[in-house]
């Protein structure tokens, strides 16, 4: 069974937001609702000034706090390691949103539930890649199987030493960032 993860190379991100809208369309989201964000951070003084664009989305933590606190069990981890929300049992209590240290969950006011990035699991199961990956003009994202040492993502992580955001929070995220 694969264990899906993503690698993100922020040195290639130009903040164009293609991923955001691709995801919104794929998942039929309203314009205000998104599973993807791009934050930026400026550092230094010219000539060493730099601005980094950092794409953010659900980290699909191995030890997912959102899943632990979900009273209804609507949040679950799929067999591929993808953290999903069962739209039929979520009541919209938003406890998961408070529990997520990355703040990557959103309320879907159309359904009245809390939603998040699903790694486009229906596309992936059909042999495709998540919408944010395939649309990215600068190929910032690599999606694949973390269990397979020969997958592109595993090699990328091994070569670049990409790390999750705030690994010290102890949630074991499955999105790895190369940031310099």
């Amino acid at each position: 069974m694969p264990r899906y993860g993503m690698a993100i190379d922020t040195t290639k991100c130009i903040g164009c937001h293609s991923c955001r809208v691709a995801c919104q369309n794929q998942n039929g989201l309203d314009y205000k609702e998104t599973f993807n964000w791009i934050k930026n951070r400026e550092r230094g003084v010219y000539p060493s000034f730099d601005k980094e664009y950092i794409p953010l989305q659900c980290n699909h933590c191995e030890n997912a706090p959102c899943q632990r606190v979900c009273p209804t069990g609507a949040t679950f981890t799929s067999k591929e390691g993808v953290v999903l929300v069962n739209p039929n049992t979520c009541v919209g209590c938003k406890y998961c949103m408070e529990a997520c240290p990355y703040k990557m969950r959103v309320v879907d006011h159309q359904l009245g539930i809390v939603e998040k990035c699903r790694f486009c699991i229906e596309l992936v199961r059909a042999g495709g890649t998540p919408a944010c990956v395939s649309t990215c003009p600068t190929q910032v994202r690599i999606f694949g199987d973390l269990n397979d040492p020969n997958s592109e993502i595993s090699k990328f992580i091994a070569q670049t030493g990409a790390l999750p955001l705030r690994p010290d929070l102890g949630t074991s995220p499955k999105i790895f960032y190369k940031r310099s």
Binding site: V69, V91, Y95, G112
Partner: peptide
């Protein structure tokens, strides 16, 4: 009242004690 789906479809509230590792349960 703060719930959304759980308010519109109150029968969903029976799931609220499904996961005992949640404080809400």
């Amino acid at each position: 009242l703060d719930l959304e789906a759980g308010l519109w479809e109150p029968w969903r509230q029976i799931y609220l004690a499904n996961n005992l590792s949640s404080m809400i349960a």
